[in-house]
Simulated assay, not measured.
Amino acid sequence: MTTAFCLSTAVMAAQSYKKDSLQIKSYATIEYSNNEVKDIELLKVLCDYCSDFQKKIIGEEVLRRSFNERFDPKNRIKNGKKKLAIYIRIAKKDLAAIKEE
C-alpha cells in the first residue's frame, strides 16, 4: 500500500512542472567552415506571451546554449550550417520577473 502511495506521489510531482512552467522553443544556427565555428546566429524565439524584452533575454540564453553545443559531435559538420531547435523551460513567475528597468 505504501509503495503505491509513493509511486503516485512521485508521478504527480513529476507532472506538476507543467502547471508551473512554460516551454519556449527557439531556433539557432551554427555555421562551420573547415570544422571550425564561424558564426552562431539566433533565428527565432517562439513565445506568444513574451514581451520583446523577454524575447531578447531568452534569445541571449539561446545563444549561450548554442555556444555550449558547438563541439557536440552530433552537431558538428565540416562545412555549412547546422540548425538547432532549443527548448527552454522557465517558471511562470521567473518569466514574469524579467522586466525592463
Score class of each variant (00 low, 15 high):
residue 28 A to E: 00
residue 63 L to M: 07
residue 85 A to K: 11
residue 18 K to M: 06
residue 87 Y to S: 08
residue 50 C to I: 02
residue 97 A to R: 06
residue 13 A to D: 04
residue 7 L to A: 12
residue 35 N to A: 11
residue 99 K to Y: 02
residue 26 S to Q: 01
residue 33 S to T: 15
residue 8 S to N: 13
residue 32 Y to H: 05
residue 43 L to A: 02
residue 22 L to Y: 07
residue 7 L to D: 14
residue 72 D to K: 15
residue 31 E to K: 14
residue 66 S to N: 03
residue 40 I to C: 01
residue 101 E to Y: 07
residue 19 K to L: 12
residue 5 F to C: 10
residue 33 S to H: 13
residue 32 Y to C: 02
residue 36 E to I: 14
residue 57 I to Y: 04
residue 96 A to R: 12
residue 67 F to Y: 10
residue 44 K to Y: 08
residue 49 Y to C: 11
residue 51 S to E: 05
residue 3 T to L: 14
residue 93 K to S: 15
residue 10 A to I: 13
residue 73 P to C: 10
residue 18 K to Y: 08
residue 43 L to Q: 07
residue 26 S to N: 02
residue 80 G to W: 03
residue 35 N to K: 11
residue 9 T to L: 15
residue 60 E to G: 09
residue 25 K to V: 15
residue 10 A to E: 08
residue 3 T to S: 14
residue 14 A to T: 13
residue 9 T to A: 11
residue 45 V to T: 00
residue 13 A to V: 02
residue 68 N to V: 06
residue 59 G to P: 01
residue 62 V to Q: 00
residue 12 M to E: 09
residue 99 K to W: 02
residue 88 I to D: 04
residue 1 M to S: 11
residue 96 A to G: 05
residue 3 T to V: 15
residue 48 D to R: 09
residue 98 I to R: 04
residue 33 S to K: 13
residue 50 C to V: 03
residue 75 N to I: 01
residue 35 N to M: 11
residue 88 I to V: 03
residue 73 P to I: 11
residue 19 K to D: 11
residue 66 S to F: 03
residue 20 D to E: 10
residue 9 T to N: 13
residue 97 A to S: 07
residue 96 A to Q: 09
residue 39 D to Q: 12
residue 72 D to T: 10
residue 87 Y to H: 14
residue 95 L to W: 03
residue 3 T to P: 13
residue 48 D to E: 09
residue 69 E to H: 04
residue 26 S to L: 00
residue 20 D to G: 07
residue 88 I to F: 02
residue 61 E to N: 14
residue 82 K to H: 04
residue 74 K to F: 03
residue 74 K to E: 06
residue 1 M to K: 11
residue 41 E to K: 15
residue 91 A to C: 09
residue 27 Y to P: 04
residue 89 R to H: 05
residue 68 N to C: 08
residue 53 F to A: 03
residue 11 V to N: 05
residue 6 C to R: 15
residue 39 D to H: 14
residue 99 K to Q: 07
residue 56 K to C: 08
residue 51 S to H: 06
residue 76 R to M: 12
residue 93 K to V: 12
residue 89 R to S: 07
residue 12 M to H: 15
residue 57 I to Q: 09
residue 84 L to R: 02
residue 15 Q to L: 12
residue 84 L to E: 01
residue 35 N to G: 10
residue 99 K to A: 06
residue 51 S to G: 07
